[in-house]
Computed example of a mutant assay.
Amino acid sequence: MEIEQCKECERPFEVMEQGGQMPGTKEPEDIECPHCGFTRTQRSNGYFSTFPLSEEHERQWLADHGGKA
């Protein structure tokens, strides 16, 4: 699990890279913010799933990383 902060709405969310059993076949895959739909692309040989954090987890992450929402 990795947590990213959206460049558009600035809210954090969880990113999971799944699949990836075929080394050497990396393709551009979208990572979409579950809050606002902003999309960025990253190369992967799998795919990405994104999930919002719980209110409490989001609040704590923002406090720990000097963010805002």
Rank of each mutant, 00 (worst) to 15 (best):
54 S>N: 06
27 E>L: 14
4 E>N: 11
7 K>C: 09
57 H>N: 14
28 P>V: 03
68 K>R: 14
28 P>I: 07
55 E>D: 13
28 P>A: 04
66 G>I: 01
35 H>T: 09
47 Y>S: 09
22 M>G: 08
56 E>K: 13
24 G>I: 02
59 R>K: 12
8 E>T: 02
10 E>A: 11
31 I>K: 00
62 L>F: 03
49 S>C: 12
59 R>H: 06
2 E>K: 14
43 R>C: 12
49 S>I: 08
35 H>N: 12
27 E>H: 12
50 T>C: 05
49 S>L: 08
30 D>H: 07
36 C>R: 04
43 R>F: 14
26 K>N: 12
50 T>L: 12
50 T>K: 08
10 E>V: 04
43 R>W: 11
55 E>G: 09
51 F>E: 09
40 R>Y: 09
11 R>V: 03
65 H>L: 08
64 D>Q: 13
30 D>E: 15
11 R>F: 00
30 D>T: 07
63 A>F: 01
54 S>M: 10
31 I>P: 02
7 K>G: 13
9 C>Y: 00
4 E>M: 11
13 F>E: 00
51 F>W: 12
29 E>K: 15
6 C>D: 06
54 S>V: 03
45 N>T: 08
18 Q>T: 03
19 G>Y: 03
4 E>K: 13
56 E>R: 10
17 E>Y: 05
50 T>Q: 06
14 E>K: 15
8 E>D: 13
16 M>Y: 10
54 S>I: 04
67 G>K: 09
1 M>H: 11
20 G>L: 07
30 D>S: 13
43 R>E: 15
69 A>P: 08
61 W>Y: 15
3 I>F: 12
9 C>H: 01
55 E>V: 09
32 E>L: 02
